[in-house]
Computed example of a mutant assay.
Amino acid sequence: MTTERAGFPWILTVACAAALALLIGLGAWQVRRLAWKEGLIAQAQAAGLAAPVPLADLAALPDPEFRRVVLPCDFQNRPHVELQSIHDGQPGMRLIAACEGWLVDLGFVPETISARPARASAAIPAITAVVRRTDPPGAFSPPPRNGRFFARDAEVMSGALGVEAARPFTLYAEESAWPQWAALTPSPPPPAFSNNHLGYALTWFGLAIVLIGFYVALLRRRLRKSAS
């Protein structure tokens, strides 16, 4: 009685080779993402340590994000809009004003504070702010109502404040524009970066190694069966 000899598993080999190329490609992509993220973190740290630049020089920077800037505007006597927000688990609103064509987030005011301070007779000294990129709102973000915004829509906010061209950045005040108003809390968002790319890369490369082991074991079993 003769035994039918099985041929070489070409289909399995091609499928495993394609899967292996995909896993290695994903791992290499995560390695590149890791380098990019580390560069971004280094950029944010360097910008945070650099001296604040004059607001007039900000537009000339190729990428002003994370830079600190000096704001010369008198915010106590400028109009502002309110953005619904939550800070440290407390509902309230953030006051958004404009300064020389840039949107400025002056800080958070709790919802329990309904009164606003009177306009000041004298301007306070310039304050510093940090630049952060502003992503456009989602398609389902609610529109503003009665002067209050529910999404950080730079274009619409700029129009409401009389700014001709909306920039994709917000300047977050580091100091209070109303030192006498304790309810206002300047709170720039920290430059938080999730840097899990090394773990993702190791996962993809680990799966590639598992796939190789699976293929070798299956191939050896197939060859032993063919030889018997």
Rank of each mutant, 00 (worst) to 15 (best):
Y172I: 13
Y172T: 07
Y172M: 13
Y172A: 12
Y172F: 15
Y172N: 11
Y172K: 13
A173N: 13
A173K: 14
A173E: 14
A173L: 15
E174C: 10
E174P: 02
E175A: 14
E175Y: 10
E175F: 10
E175N: 12
E175R: 15
S176Q: 08
S176L: 10
S176F: 07
S176I: 08
A177S: 13
A177C: 04
W178Y: 15
W178G: 02
P179Q: 07
P179G: 04
P179C: 08
Q180D: 15
W181M: 01
W181K: 01
W181E: 01
A182F: 01
A182E: 10
A183L: 03
A183H: 03
A183M: 03
A183G: 04
A183K: 03
L184E: 01
L184G: 01
L184A: 03
L184K: 04
L184N: 02
L184R: 04
L184H: 02
T185I: 13
T185D: 02
T185R: 12
T185Y: 01
T185F: 00
T185H: 02
P186L: 03
P186D: 05
S187V: 06
S187A: 15
S187N: 12
S187C: 04
S187Q: 08
P188S: 11
P188L: 14
P188G: 10
P189Q: 14
P189N: 12
P189E: 12
P189T: 13
P189A: 14
P190G: 11
P190S: 13
P190D: 11
P191M: 06
A192G: 01
A192E: 05
A192Q: 10
A192H: 06
A192D: 07
A192T: 09
F193Y: 09
F193M: 03
F193V: 05
F193H: 02
F193E: 02
S194W: 05
S194K: 07
S194L: 11
S194T: 12
S194Q: 09
N195L: 11
N195V: 08
N195H: 09
N195K: 06
N196W: 02
N196R: 13
N196L: 07
H197S: 03
H197W: 00
H197M: 02
H197G: 00
L198D: 01
L198V: 04
L198S: 01
L198T: 01
L198K: 06
L198Y: 02
L198P: 00
G199L: 13
G199Q: 15
G199Y: 05
Y200H: 12
Y200Q: 12
Y200G: 07
Y200K: 09
A201S: 15
A201G: 08
A201R: 11
A201C: 12
L202G: 09
L202A: 15
L202Q: 13
L202D: 10
L202R: 14
L202P: 12
T203C: 05
T203G: 05
